[in-house]
Design a binder for these strands. Structure first.
Length: 108
DNA sequence: ACGTTGACCTATA
DNA sequence: GTATAGGCCAACG
């Protein structure tokens, strides 16, 4: 596996329950800068990884659950988030700013 | 090998 | 404030 993928998975796994983050933060943390798309690709195959990666905690900058379709069923992602206490309305995370988890600051 | 697509973001108008 | 443009790198056809 490429180091990029491993780093992405590592960061995503360290996201605390009930918190969410976006692709840009992860991309910048990895030093890829604007390569946020690569993060998406990494998460795309994340379901094959072991241990499982909580990709449901990763959303886009708008807090929209863009990748819900890749979870097998569109409702799975929202279910998981709500199960962790994250309110989701119309595929959007409520209070995204509060629940936002920045790897740069939090991991330091 | 080439063009298109993709769980996106930043910048400029 | 929204609209459009550019960039980013990997996978797919």
């Amino acid at each position: 596996m490429s180091d990029f993928y491993e780093m992405v998975y590592d960061v995503v796994r360290q996201i605390p329950p009930g918190r969410v983050t976006n692709f840009g933060a992860i991309a910048r943390y990895l030093g890829s800068g604007g390569s946020a798309r690569m993060v998406g690709w990494a998460l795309n195959v994340s379901h094959l990884q072991n241990p499982h990666v909580p990709a449901h905690r990763v959303v886009n900058r708008n807090g929209l659950l863009t990748g819900k379709i890749h979870f097998g069923s569109p409702n799975v992602m929202q279910e998981l988030l709500e199960n962790e206490g994250v309110k989701v309305v119309d595929d959007c995370v409520v209070d995204f700013d509060q629940l936002f988890w920045d790897p740069m600051k939090e991991m330091s």
